[in-house]
Simulated scan of single mutants.
Amino acid sequence: MQILIFSLVVILLVGYIFYKLNQFYSKKTITFGTLFIIEIIWLGIYISNNNEVGINKAFKAKYKKEFGYKIDKLSSNIINKGKNLSLNEYFYRFIYIVKKDNKEFVCEANDIFVQVIQDEYVFKDIKEKCREK
């Protein structure tokens, strides 16, 4: 019900904005402006998703190199530790599923310090805690 009301309010708001813009601009100008705004939003979403994919790929490669096992599924979150870090330093929490000796394990690596240098991710030591799935 709340989603329906919210959607209705958004549709009414967009309609009102187009009505007001139609008084000052031509339909062609409004169409191009709308398409431009949609492309900007799409580009922002794409860049945001691409950044998360990059850190996940880098962690999988580092894990395979360090431990010799392939990660099947991976989830990552940025942790705010309240420390004053520079703009290219983060703490991450990784949760992943890995197969070791024909058994599946759910592993967790907390407080992994990551430095971002241009498009490369540098990880500190990976300390994991695993349990059998």
Rank of each mutant, 00 (worst) to 15 (best):
I71K: 00
E132K: 13
A61P: 03
K65T: 06
A61L: 13
K129L: 07
Y19M: 08
K70R: 12
F24G: 03
D72E: 12
K57D: 11
G15L: 07
Y96H: 05
G33P: 03
K103N: 14
V106I: 14
S86Q: 09
V53R: 14
Y25I: 00
Y90D: 03
E128S: 13
V106M: 10
I117F: 09
K64T: 05
R93A: 11
S86P: 01
N88W: 06
I71C: 02
K124I: 00
I112W: 05
L12N: 10
E108L: 14
K103F: 09
K99C: 04
A58M: 02
Y16I: 03
K127Q: 07
F67A: 00
C107L: 06
K100W: 10
T34N: 04
Q23P: 02
F6H: 15
N50D: 15
R93T: 11
C130S: 02
N77S: 10
K27F: 07
I117Q: 14
Y121P: 02
L35I: 10
E104Q: 15
G54M: 14
I40V: 15
I117A: 11
N102P: 06
Q115W: 05
S48V: 02
I11G: 05
I45Y: 15
Y63E: 06
F123H: 01
K99H: 05
K100Q: 15
A61S: 12
F59T: 03
V98I: 05
G82A: 07
G33L: 00
N88G: 04
A61T: 08
Y69T: 07
K127M: 06
I5P: 05
V98H: 07
